[in-house]
């Protein structure tokens, strides 16, 4: 394009619009959850106890902290502290990896107990418990996928920051990646009590 047009607010607004679409995407799964919960409240409580609160709690901490570090990274670049910003980005990615590893151990434990979609052992536990675990796997799976995408996005932006393509004057890219990252913190804030903490 011959005339470079720059509109940072527009870019942020576009990102927010995109985040809305992500929220609606997840809301489909939350609708299924809500309906099933109202149908099988007892079974859901039983199934929820089979999940490990410690895994879930640890992951909550990890995600909240990563949200903090990426928010700090944005402030850092605004104030021109490139080095701090880079460190904070890499810490965020590190936390994302911790989150995924944690998830991996949690899931392998459950799968080894025969709890996974389509398993016979799960089917034997009745429709309520089955529906809980089916939804749990798909919601957490979709969430995990997005965490993976978000971490990759931050990695790309961090490299660009190192190459001075993201600068204190021009940091919308980092800000938008941070917005994306916060969203999956948000989703987890709801996911955690709904799946791990029902009495």
């Amino acid at each position: 394009m011959s005339i470079e047009h720059r509109d940072d607010t527009g870019a942020r607004f576009g990102m927010w619009l995109f985040l809305y679409t992500e929220v609606i995407l997840f809301s489909g799964l939350f609708i299924l959850y809500a309906v099933a919960l109202s149908k099988f409240p007892q079974d859901y409580a039983v199934a929820s106890h089979k999940l490990n609160v410690w895994f879930g709690g640890a992951n909550t901490l990890v995600l909240l902290t990563s949200s903090l570090t990426i928010a700090l990274a944005v402030s850092a670049i605004q104030m021109g502290r490139k080095k701090q910003c880079l460190t904070l980005c890499w810490v965020t990615i590190g936390l994302a990896i911790v989150f995924l590893i944690n998830k991996f151990f949690e899931w392998s434990a459950e799968i080894s107990h025969g709890i996974y979609p389509g398993s016979e052992q799960l089917a034997a536990m009745g429709p309520g418990v089955t529906s809980f675990f089916n939804l749990y796997y798909f919601t957490a799976g979709l969430h995990g996928l997005h965490v993976l995408i978000g971490a990759s996005l931050i990695a790309v932006v961090a490299v660009m920051t190192a190459q001075d393509k993201v600068t204190p004057e021009r940091y919308t890219l980092l800000e938008n990646s941070a917005l994306y990252w916060h969203l999956f913190d948000l989703v987890w804030i709801f996911l955690f009590p709904l799946y791990y903490l029902i009495l």
Binding site: V74, H182, L186, F190, L194
Partner: peptide
């Protein structure tokens, strides 16, 4: 649980997300 989660998310939205 949903109420607390809403408070948490508004903190994230208004501060972390600017």
């Amino acid at each position: 649980a949903l109420g607390v989660a809403s408070i948490k998310s508004s903190l994230v939205i208004f501060f972390f997300m600017h």
